[in-house]
């Protein structure tokens, strides 16, 4: 297996790590594992990680992707950090509602509102 190119766009501004996804589908398990590992590394490198995940380009995700988001959320909280999600397509947001994960995650319609919510 060759080293894979990152499938994330990561920018850090004012102490907040902004992450967005290059691909429309977060379905394939190998891909989900890769992005989970990449985001975990960002959390490991930060003291009190403040992370914004933007789903602006994402059209599909699976329960395995939800599982990875939960793992990321648990890890951020263990480090005293904060995680926000934004720009989620209405169809995907419905998946969060059905699974009640909209209660677990702090989800904002737009990135600006998500950024303003960091403490």
């Amino acid at each position: 297996m060759t080293a894979k190119e990152s499938r994330l766009v990561v920018r850090e501004e004012d102490g907040i790590i902004k992450v967005s996804f290059l691909d429309r589908n977060i379905l394939e398990e190998a891909y989900i594992q890769q992005i989970g590992d990449e985001i975990s590394a960002l959390i490991d490198d930060a003291t009190n990680p403040k992370i914004l995940l933007s789903f602006a380009s994402v059209e599909h995700l699976s329960s395995a992707a939800l599982g990875t988001l939960i793992t990321i959320n648990n890890k951020v909280r263990q480090k005293g950090g904060q995680l926000r999600l934004s720009n989620i397509d209405p169809q995907i947001y419905e998946v969060f509602v059905i699974t009640k994960l909209n209660k677990l995650f702090q989800i904002h319609e737009e990135a600006d509102a998500a950024l303003a919510s960091f403490q």
Binding site: S62, S63, A64, L66, G67, T68, I70, T71, N73, N74, V95, I98, T99, K100, L101, K103, L104
Partner: peptide, 21 residues
Amino acid sequence: DPTLDENLTCPSGRGVMLIQA
């Protein structure tokens, strides 16, 4: 039931309920 409060932070167990939904 993955939607119970005590199971919300468990990373797995949502596939079957999504299929049914």
